[in-house]
Each structure stands twice: as structure tokens, then as C-alpha cells.
């Protein structure tokens, strides 16, 4: 049964249909939120609020084929609210030390909490954590586009519809987002060998 049928069932009074939608969408929505805000517990909380909001207002959704976009829209809004509320710490490029700062040429990194690590970061940190930090280091408007495109397989036109922006703006943000991630990973000393080692 596809999403549209489940929505029809739900609007007819079958709550179990909504639970099926939750079961179907909780993993992508949770991962979207997690990558957006970077905190597991907060991501769970935001995901719950997202589905509660969807439950309350699904009856008002006229075009049932837009359900996934509509759900992502709710998630984006909640993530933005959460980030404003909690003022999550993001790591800017200027916080990251340059290769040239290392005396022996061996790449080092200043961890966000100030803890120094003299060995290569990728050998100690989980790749997901590393990429999460890299993602949090790029601007929010680029991050959301990168997440939607890279991890949710949304077409540029779909992302443009969710974020209510021109498609070329979305592509441009994607380009700059990927470029910024590349710079962050390079500055953190993550090269292709590191990644292949980790993987």
C-alpha cells in the first residue's frame, strides 16, 4: 500500500494507517534530523514532534502525493526551531587548524572541546562522527540541501519545492556545500587513503 492509500485510510479514521506511515518514514526522517542537528537525543525528540505535528495536520494536506515533501518540510522547520532554541555549537572553517600549523608536517586537529589529538583523526574517530562534525561546520542553508540530496535521494526540483526556492539556488547551494565539506575534510587531514583505511 502506497503513502497516498495510507493517508486516505487515515483520514477515514484508521489510525493504524498512520502508524504504517510512521514505521515507513521514521528512519529517513530521524536520519535527516540527526544529520541536520547532530545530536541523537535531540533528533529523537524532534522526530517525535515531527510525527505528532503530521498526525494533527495530515487531514489538511490536499495533495497526498506531496506527503514526503510535506513531512520533510515539517522536519526542516522543527530543526530550524531547535537550532535557534538550543544554539547548537557549529564548527566554522576558521576554527580548524591548517596543515601549515603543524611543525612536523603530520596533520593534527584541535577538537571542538579543545582536546588535542596528536594522531591522525580518522584513525580514532568514527567516520560518521567525523562527517557529522564536517556537516555541522558548513552553513545551515547548504547543509540541508546536501542532506536532502546526498542522503535522501531527492531531486533538485523536490528540494526546491520543500525549501520553496529556485532550483538553481538549490544547485548552487549544493555545489558550495560539497566544496565546503571538501575543504573541511582536507583541513582535518582526511585524504582518500584515510577514508579507504576507515572504510
Amino acid at each position: 500500500m502506497n503513502d497516498e492509500s495510507l493517508i486516505r485510510e487515515f483520514t477515514a479514521g484508521n489510525v493504524a494507517a498512520f502508524n504504517t506511515l510512521v514505521w515507513r518514514w521514521e528512519k529517513p526522517i530521524y536520519n535527516f534530523i540527526l544529520r541536520y542537528i547532530g545530536d541523537r537525543e535531540q533528533a529523537k525528540d524532534v522526530m517525535q514532534r515531527c510525527f505528532i505535528r503530521a498526525y494533527k495536520s495530515l487531514g489538511k494536506l490536499k495533495d497526498h502525493t506531496r506527503f514526503s515533501s510535506w513531512l520533510y518540510q515539517i522536519a526542516v522547520n522543527l530543526c530550524r526551531d531547535e537550532l535557534k532554541k538550543k544554539r547548537y555549537t557549529t564548527y566554522s572553517l576558521s576554527d580548524v587548524p591548517d596543515y601549515n600549523d603543524c611543525d612536523n608536517g603530520d596533520p593534527k586537529i584541535v577538537l571542538p572541546d579543545g582536546e588535542q589529538d596528536t594522531t591522525r583523526l580518522t584513525h580514532h574517530e568514527n567516520l560518521a562522527e567525523l562527517l557529522q562534525k564536517a556537516l555541522l561546520a558548513i552553513p545551515e542553508e547548504q547543509r540541508v540541501v546536501v542532506i536532502m540530496k546526498q542522503y535522501h535521494g531527492m531531486k533538485f526540483s523536490e528540494i526546491a519545492a520543500v525549501l520553496k526556492m529556485p532550483i538553481n539556488t538549490i544547485k548552487s547551494r549544493m555545489y558550495y556545500g560539497l566544496d565546503a565539506l571538501h575543504s573541511v575534510l582536507q583541513k582535518w587531514g582526511v585524504d582518500r587513503e584515510d577514508l579507504s583505511y576507515e572504510m
Partner: peptide
């Protein structure tokens, strides 16, 4: 290369039981 790197980051299970 960056896209290839990002592809390695897999989704995780939410481990939340949401039932309406």
C-alpha cells in the same frame, strides 16, 4: 571524491517506538 566519502555514512536506526 567528497560525494564518494559522504556515501560511506550510513543511516542508523532511530530506536524509538512511535505508535499512535
Amino acid at each position: 571524491v567528497t560525494v564518494h566519502t559522504l556515501e560511506k555514512w550510513e543511516d542508523v536506526e532511530p530506536r524509538v517506538n512511535l505508535t499512535f
